[in-house]
Design a protein around this nucleic acid. Structure first.
Lengths: 337, 337
DNA sequence: CTGAAAGCGCTAACAT
DNA sequence: ATGTTAGCGCTTTCAG
C-alpha cells in the first residue's frame, strides 16, 4: 500500500536504520549510501509515518498555537501572527495545531499530555491568566505572547507596549504639543486585564507626566459609531487638545473621518499617532505616524524561542521587541497661535 | 513516567484491550468494568498517546485546514471560518492542523501522505485550482470551500453567491430601483478567478437583466481611498443610480462615508445592500440590508461533510447554502419624482 | 560506517 | 463480556 521505511531500505540495498539515519543525519552516512537512499526515497515517494515517528522518538514535531477569539482583539493582527508562526514553524520542520482559547486549560492539557504536540505558543495572555500554573507544570515547553503579572518560570515575548505608549507621547511632546489624549482599546480589554492595553496606558501616562503634559484617556469600542462619539467627546471636554495616540486598529479610519467632520484638519489642527500594523497605517487617507505592531516578527521570534527550548538551550524569560515610531503625515508641530 | 494503557489496566484489574474498548466503545463492556476503568483513568490522569494511537489504528484524528493568505480576502471571514472549523472538529473529537496556502500542493501531500491528518479542508478554491488533481488522487477525503469550474469527484460547499447577487438585485427591483451598481471585490480577486466573486457578478448581472434594469460593475480595492474614488466615479458616470450592491467587506464604512460626503442620504437618495457577515452589517452607522456570509455555518457543515466521508458515507458533491437577505435600514423605495 | 533487533503505546484480530 | 497477542512503522540502542 503506502511505502514504508523497509521498502526504501530494500530498494536501496541498505538496512532500515540506515535509511532512518540518512534522514535524520544523526550518524555519519557515506556520501554514496546517502545518495542511493535519497534516490530510493524519491523514486518510491516515501513519507515517514508521522505517528510511528512520534511513537518511536517521542517527538511529534507539532506545536500547539492557542488563539484568542474574544472581543476587542484585532483579527488581522492575530491572523498575521498565526501565519507567521506557521511559516516559521515549517522552517524548523514543525507543523502547527490550532487550539482555541475556548478550550481553556483542558485543551492545553489534552494536546500536551497526549503527546500530540511537543510545545505550545499561547497568545493573548492576561495579567492573571488561569492557564499559567498549568503551563508551569506541563512537561512541555511553552512561549507566551504577552506578559502576565508574574512571569517567573515562563517564557514571554511581546512588543514593548509601554515603550510604544511612551514614544508616541515623546514624539508629540517634541513637536510642541501640550495636551494629549489616548484613544484606547475597547473597555472589555482593560476590564479583563489584558496586559498590552495596560502597558500602553502606563507608558502614555508616564511620558505625559514626565513632559508635564495634560493627558486624558478614553477607551473606545471597535465600531465606527463609538469612534465618532469618542472623537466628539474628546474635543468637547478638552478643547485645548492638539495630539492623540490611538491604540485601536479598528477605529482609525472612522476617527480620521470624525475629526474631519468636526472641522479639524490632520495634522494641521490635530496630530495623530497610532499603534497598529504598518500596512494599516499607510493605507489610510492620511498616512499615520505610528508604532508598528510587528506580528510577523513576533511570531517568528516566538517560534525561535520555542525551538531553542526544545533543544534544551536556555532562553531569556522575557523578550521585549523594541518600539519603533515611524513619522508619517499625521503629525506635525503644534501651531503656536 | 507518563501513565500508559497498561498502567490503567493493572490499576483497574483488567486487560489493556478492555481499557481500549472501554474508551472507544467498539465492543460491549459491562457497566461495572466500565466504571472501574473510568475511575482508574481519572485517578491516574491517563491520556492515550496520540502517536501510538495513530500508528495502531491508522487514524490520527486530525484534520488539515488550508487557509488563504492572499490579498483581497477579508480576514475576519477567514478567521471566523477557521474558528468554526476547529470548534466543530473538536465536537467530533478531531484536532485541526493549520496549513498555509503558501505550502501549495507539496504541503497537502506532506500532511496527507505522512498520515499526519486523516482529511483536509481547503479554503479559497479557484476556478482552475492547481491543487484539484492532487486532491482527487489523494487517498484521504477532502472538502473544498468554493466551487472550481470542474468539481467532479470532489466535495464542495459554499454560500450560494450567485443567488446572493440575485437576491440583492431582486430586493432593489422590488423597491422600484431601475439603475443599480455592483461595487465588487478587489480586481485581483477577479483576475485570479476566485469563484465566489465571479458568481456574485453573474447573479447580479443576470437579475438586473431579468428585471430590465441598467447595471454597472466596479471592482474596488480594499482601502478607504479606493472606496471614495469608486463612490465618486459611480455617481459621476451614472447620475440616475439609486441602488448599489456591495461585495467588499473592507470598504463598507468608507463607502457610507463617501456617499454622505457626496450629499446622498442613505437610504433616501441611495439604497445599499451588502454581502457581508451579519455583525458587520449591523455595526455600521446605517444598519445595512444584507445577505449574510455565514462563516460559522460553512465551517460546521464542511466538517460534517468530512466526518461523513471519513465514516464512508456518501455525501453530495455540491452543497450550496441558501442566500438569505435581511432587510435593514439601508434600503427603501425609490423616490418617484 | 552499517546492521540487527528491541521496543515506543496502542488497537484489533483471535481467542475463550 | 473479557483476555492474549501480534503487529502498526519508526528510532535507537547495541554490535560489529
Amino acid at each position: 500500500m503506502t511505502v514504508k521505511i523497509t521498502d526504501v531500505a530494500r530498494h536501496a540495498g541498505v538496512s532500515p536504520s540506515t535509511v532512518s539515519y540518512a534522514l535524520s543525519g544523526k550518524r555519519p552516512i557515506s556520501a554514496e549510501t546517502r545518495a542511493r537512499v535519497a534516490a530510493s526515497i524519491r523514486e518510491l515517494g516515501y513519507r515517514p509515518h508521522a505517528g510511528a515517528r512520534a511513537l518511536a522518538s517521542s517527538k511529534s514535531n507539532v506545536l500547539a498555537m492557542v488563539v484568542p477569539l474574544r472581543a476587542g482583539i484585532h483579527v488581522p493582527v492575530v491572523m498575521g501572527f498565526a501565519v507567521s508562526v506557521v511559516t516559521s514553524a515549517r522552517a524548523h520542520d514543525h507543523d502547527v495545531l490550532l487550539v482555541t482559547q475556548e478550550e481553556g486549560e483542558e485543551g492545553l492539557r489534552r494536546v500536551a499530555d497526549s503527546a500530540l504536540v511537543d510545545a505550545l505558543i499561547v497568545m493573548d495572555v492576561q495579567l492573571d491568566d488561569p492557564r499559567l500554573p498549568l503551563l508551569r507544570t506541563l512537561d512541555r515547553p511553552s512561549v507566551l505572547i504577552g506578559f502576565p503579572s508574574a512571569a517567573d518560570g515562563l517564557t514571554c515575548i511581546d512588543l514593548d507596549f509601554r515603550a510604544a505608549g511612551e514614544v508616541c507621547v515623546d514624539h508629540l511632546a517634541g513637536l510642541g504639543h501640550r495636551v494629549v489624549g489616548l484613544i484606547g482599546s475597547p473597555p472589555e480589554v482593560y476590564v479583563r486585564q489584558t496586559s498590552f492595553a495596560q502597558r500602553v496606558l502606563q507608558g502614555f501616562t508616564a511620558a505625559a507626566t514626565r513632559h508635564g503634559m495634560t493627558s486624558t484617556v478614553h477607551p473606545c469600542e471597535a465600531t465606527p459609531a463609538a469612534a465618532r462619539e469618542v472623537a466628539e467627546r474628546l474635543l468637547r471636554e478638552h478643547p485645548a487638545l492638539t495630539g492623540v495616540v490611538v491604540h485601536n486598529e479598528a477605529v482609525l479610519d472612522p476617527l480620521l473621518d470624525a475629526f474631519e467632520h468636526l472641522g479639524l484638519r490632520i495634522p494641521a489642527d490635530l496630530s495623530i499617532t497610532a499603534l497598529c500594523p504598518d500596512d494599516l497605517a499607510t493605507s489610510l487617507r492620511v498616512p499615520l505616524t505610528s508604532v508598528a505592531i510587528p506580528s510577523a516578527e513576533l511570531g517568528e521570534q516566538a517560534v525561535n524561542l520555542l525551538m531553542r527550548k526544545l533543544d534544551g538551550a536556555p532562553v531569556p524569560e522575557a523578550t521585549l521587541l523594541p518600539a519603533h515610531l515611524t513619522p508619517r503625515a499625521s503629525t506635525t508641530h503644534r501651531l503656536t497661535g
